[in-house]
Amino acid sequence: MNRYIAQKQITEIAKHAAMIVICLVTLFPILWILAQSLKGYFDTIAVPPRIFFTPVLDNFRHVLQRRGFLQALSDSLIVALGSSMLGLFLGTPCGYALARIRFRGSDTVGFFLLITRMVSPIVIIIPLNRLFAVFGLMDSHTGLILAHTFINIGLVVWMMRGYFGDIPESLEEAARIDGCSTVTAFWRVALPTAAPGLAASGIFCFLFSWNEFMFALTLTSRAVHTSPVFISSEFIGYLAVEWGLLSASGMLIVLPMLIFVVAIQKNLIRGLTMGAVK
């Protein structure tokens, strides 16, 4: 009996040991970029790389004083907030309709929205470029917000469809018996109840928009310059690798998203699977 318990403990410890190794491997790149961001210039270009060094905050100070970096952050913020809000505004009613209202073609609409999540932006990026040029949307916040909303709308609809599906219908029925129209029932009853779903979808859209690269690279250039584009070009071609500055700005760009990801853990999986897994 004792041996059985001892064996159980050993396997338990082995499992934790394996898990700790896995977590370390997972975290290693994040820890390394943090280490690089805290190195002085000569430590970053050292061969072999230095594992032990005196940490300094110079890189962060330099990056935060760069106008380009702050502009990139504010552009990213504007675009991410804008596209999240537009995505929620357009997608939430659609998700509600798919969850609640019986109408012809609802399956087709749902599938069509899935498709938008599956195609690569490259499929529409070239014609979009031309169209945006005609309408003066190139290199503007509005243009990029529209493009990012395209990326996010399918997600919002499918996530919200899932959330509305989870809410007991009795409330809205009661409201409708009281004489509310479908629109009022949606607005007054369903929407407030689905607030956590709205928040989760919104954070999702924010995350995708914040990290999006291809549209940002091609639809904007000078007036709008989001942080992934900034970091991919800012520290290159300048006579020496600037790994310290690169890492510091990388850390600053990534940190809020790491917090988001942990905060919305459960919803994250739901969102990534378009509501197929709860």
């Binding site: 470029n129 040029a133 190139m138 690279l217 091609t218 250039s221 000078r222 800012e234 290159i236």
Partner: peptide, 24 residues
């Protein structure tokens, strides 16, 4: 005056010229 990184000059500036939105 605006200064842009080298990579921006090579990808984004031509894209802006093609779109006719380069304002410099």
């Amino acid at each position: 005056l605006r200064r842009v990184p080298h990579d921006v000059m090579m990808v984004e500036v031509p894209a802006a010229m093609a779109a006719g939105t380069l304002t410099d």
